[in-house]
Amino acid sequence: MASKSAPPGTRSVARSIKGARWAALLAGAALSGTAVAATWNLQPPATVIASDIHSLHEYVMLLVTVIFVGVFGFMFWAIFAHRKSKGHKAAQFHENVTIEIVWTVIPALILIAIVVPATKVVIAQKDTSNPDITIKATGYQWKWGYDYLKGEGAGISFLSNLATSRDQIEGRASKDGNYLLEVDHPLVVPVDKKVRIVTTGADVIHSWSVPAFGVKQDSIPGILRDTWFKADKTGTFRGQCSELCGKDHGFMPIVVKVVTEPQYAAWVAEQTKNNAAKK
C-alpha cells in the first residue's frame, strides 16, 4: 500500500470529506487518494492449514465459476435466441423426468467432490493434540490477555492493547501503515512449533483471529475453547477481534510475532527477568 508511509498531506481527502461530506461523496472522489494496490484475496498463508484453505477456496471457486458460466450460458442463449422480438414461438413442454434427475444427481456428485477435501482440512484443523506451547488468550473489553501455560515460556503473561493513538483514529494525526493493527505487547511465538491457543472471555464473547494462520476461535466468557497453528515462516502477523464485543470491537487487534528459536529463547529469558524484577 502506498499510503503506508504517506505524508500527512495524502490523508487530506479524508479530512475534506469530513468537512464537505456529501458534496465530496457525490463528486465521485471515491478513488482519489488511495493506492491502486488494493487487496482482494485471502492474505498470504503462513501455516499449512491456511494454505490448505487457500487451495480449497480456489478449487471451489473454480467449480462454481464453471457451473455459473454453464447455467447462465444456457440462460443467455435463450435470451438471445428465444426472444419474442425475433419472432420465436414458445414451445409448451414443461416436464422432463430424465433431465430433472440429471440435474439433481450431478450437483450431488459435485458436492461430494467438494466436501471430501474440505473434511480433510477440518479434521486437521481441529487436531489440537500434542502442542509444543500452550497459551491462553483471554478477550477483555477491549484488549487481549495472554498467559503462557505450557512449554517454553510457561508462566509469562501480559496484556496486549491497541497501540494506535486516539489522534490517528480521530483524524488529528496522520495514520501509520499499520493503523489499527498495532499493539503494545504482541504475542511472541517460535517458528515451526505447534502452538495451541486456549481461548476464553472475561466479559463478553470476542474472537481470536489471525487470517494468515487460518485461525479464528471465539473466546467465550466462562468457557474454554482451543485452536492451534504452526507458523512456517517468521514475521509479524496481524488480525482483529472477530466477534462484536461492544464499542471498541474494532479496536482490539491481535498481533503475533513469529521469531526463530534462539530469538524466542532470548525473549523468554528477558520476560522472565522482567517478571522477576517486578516481584
Binding site: I79, H88, I99
Partner: peptide
C-alpha cells in the same frame, strides 16, 4: 432457466 428455454421471451 428451463422455463425460459425455447420460450417466447420479452423483457
Amino acid at each position: 432457466v428451463a422455463t425460459m428455454w425455447k420460450g417466447s421471451l420479452s423483457f
